[in-house]
Design a protein around this nucleic acid. Structure first.
Lengths: 346, 346
DNA sequence: TTGGGCTGCTGATTCGATTCAGCAATGCAC
DNA sequence: GTGCATTGCTGAATCGAATCAGCAGCCCAA
């Protein structure tokens, strides 16, 4: 434990103010009215606190109160993800909001490390644990977690009964549909919807199809490929046909869109004049491309913040699964004329 | 504090094993030999631990020992950075290695939040604090930090006397020089070396110039622009001249290189046949470009890990500033023939 | 037979707060 | 002047472990 100089204790404050430790404690915990402490005593204690630079020892307080003012965040690799780390940012900010500190640990997907980490956090006495995953998927949490106060972030575990906070991928798919519903040519999906055992692909596709149907349109084709730049480039390049002109590519994430851009450029097709491109994730990459990419964003910061809020709320005060909207980040890759007002009948 | 069932205490273990709390404590702390505890007593205590599922209360232990088994990481925005969050990964892993947990907090550059966060962590009783910045730069840490056990990560504070762990930007610049030293045309730098008040640009440029000089070459030109894709695209596009053929662009970071790629493509110049491109950072982006980018990488994971190691080492056992090498991540943007063996006389 | 040393343990205190139960002093009603 | 509330505080226990100082019991040597 770091110590600058010898720290003042509550007893020192009490002595200097000429009151008992009990009285000083009541005053510092805002219970002076309830305990009918005189204004004079309150003043003396407060100035003693200032004079001595007193700061309460949180460890001692924790021992007594069984609360530590910390929450844990266990993730498979949240911090490493080039955008998923924003969940951490949101969680950290929400924790600060409630004067809590955030204990983080990465498991790298190793179940053993995961158990150790959860146990260690519980031993430390965290007031709750957020269990986060890089990809939106189904998980099976360690027993110790299921038995404690915890919230799932970007994943669900039907067996555990723990509350979860996830992006509304289906709604995101519907937003993508709205963006391209009026384009003249075919709507084509790029990316394998079963990528990486994640929910994202299938749900985005489902939302897209659902909303296109409502608007009287269909998905003309699905160009399957891994969610990487080179795979998408090659796949789109092979698939490309002049018949696709005036249509739209709905890319299942931004890297896929980057690959699609490269392929389209190689074929001399101009975005957005010849083809509209929409994608998902809303990563920084979307802003680096030319033209900038219109992307349905994963609200990572909000997800992280909400997870902590749900964790701190009284158990049962939230729906089992909280779905956060995926906002559209507008770029220059979709002509305005192709879009429909969200929610309209088309 | 999360509680599944009522937890067993040391007293329960001692009672079940038929020994005193003292004896049980010595055994669990590995002092049974020193304290001449009989093998029989040791066995009884160990099985009592298993039977009761005993886990020591870290809070109580901390109160007594004045050590908490946690280290803090305060950053301006480490987690949000799309690659700087890797520092967190490294720090987290190093902390786990020593059975410590990592408390993280982001300040968003707000000095008030910074002070509050540092104080809160010190109140929590962290065993040390890592103070990290997104950009390599000079900082002035809060007084409370300077007086406690702390290490600077990716920044330096000459006034505080705290040890620092930073990337070896000058060495990185030298590596870049080695990569392009033998190209036939001019070596041109892209990016403003004074970008964002960071040390990175100036030091990279200095290393580049120094090593090029040793090899009998010079920097032909510096194309100044912000470190962003569009700024670099425009700047390179304006600057481009056929005289630059067979030369090399040294981009001060990967986003600048991406902009340069776009400009070169627009002018019909092919990488690496017409122009070699080298950059810095080693971000994921380097792998997404075509051809893949050769980049001198910031060793973020190693930086984070080393910072924690320095923090835990006895004070004074490390140099005031630890510089970690920037490894070259090879891509396809530099012809092999352009390179020189590092360290050779040219 | 007594003094010293070794073995194998334990009682009591401590860390620094929170909090229950209670107590002296005063005021007020009757 | 007795009884009862109210005011304004305090003593002591408590949280769960770590650890210092010490204490029986036994053996062996002088």
């Amino acid at each position: 434990m770091v110590r600058g100089v010898r720290k003042a204790r509550l007893a020192d404050v009490a002595a200097r103010a000429g009151v008992s430790r009990t009285t000083a404690s009541y005053i510092l915990n805002g219970r002076s009215a309830e305990m009918r402490i005189s204004a004079d005593a309150v003043d003396r204690v407060r100035s003693a606190v200032v004079d001595l630079g007193y700061r309460p020892n949180r460890t001692a307080r924790s021992l007594r109160t069984a609360r530590t003012g910390t929450v844990g965040l266990v993730s498979d690799s949240v911090a490493s993800g080039h955008f998923a780390s924003r969940m951490l940012t949101g969680a950290s900010a929400a924790a600060r909001e409630s004067d809590l500190l955030l204990l983080v640990g990465e498991t790298d997907g190793d179940p053993l490390v995961e158990r150790l980490l959860v146990d260690q956090m519980l031993d430390q006495g965290v007031d709750g644990i957020v269990y986060a995953t890089l990809r939106h998927r189904e998980v099976s949490v360690p027993l110790a977690l299921a038995q404690s106060r915890a919230v799932l972030l970007n994943c669900v575990d039907p067996a555990s009964g723990l509350p979860a906070v996830v992006p509304d991928e289906v709604g995101g798919g519907r937003s993508a549909a709205d963006l391209v519903a009026r384009c003249a040519g075919p709507v084509v999906v790029v990316g394998d919807e079963a990528e990486q055992g994640s929910y994202a692909g299938a749900m985005r596709l489902a939302g897209l199809e659902e909303r296109l149907g409502e608007l009287g349109r269909t998905i003309a084709d699905v160009v399957r490929c891994d969610w990487t730049v080179p795979a998408a480039r090659d796949a789109v390049s092979c698939w490309w046909t002049p018949a696709a002109r005036d249509g739209a590519l709905v890319c299942l994430n931004d890297r896929v869109a980057m690959g699609a851009y490269q392929a389209l450029a190689a074929h001399g097709a101009v975005v957005p004049d010849d083809v509209a491109v929409v994608s998902f994730d809303g990563s920084d990459l979307a802003g680096w491309l030319t033209p900038t990419l219109t992307s349905v964003a994963l609200p990572f910061v909000a997800l992280g913040a909400r997870a902590v809020e749900v964790l701190l709320a009284p158990p049962g005060s939230h729906a089992p699964v909280t779905r956060l909207a995926m906002p559209v980040v507008r770029g220059g890759s979709v002509p305005a004329a192709a879009a429909v007002t969200p929610g309209s009948a088309g």
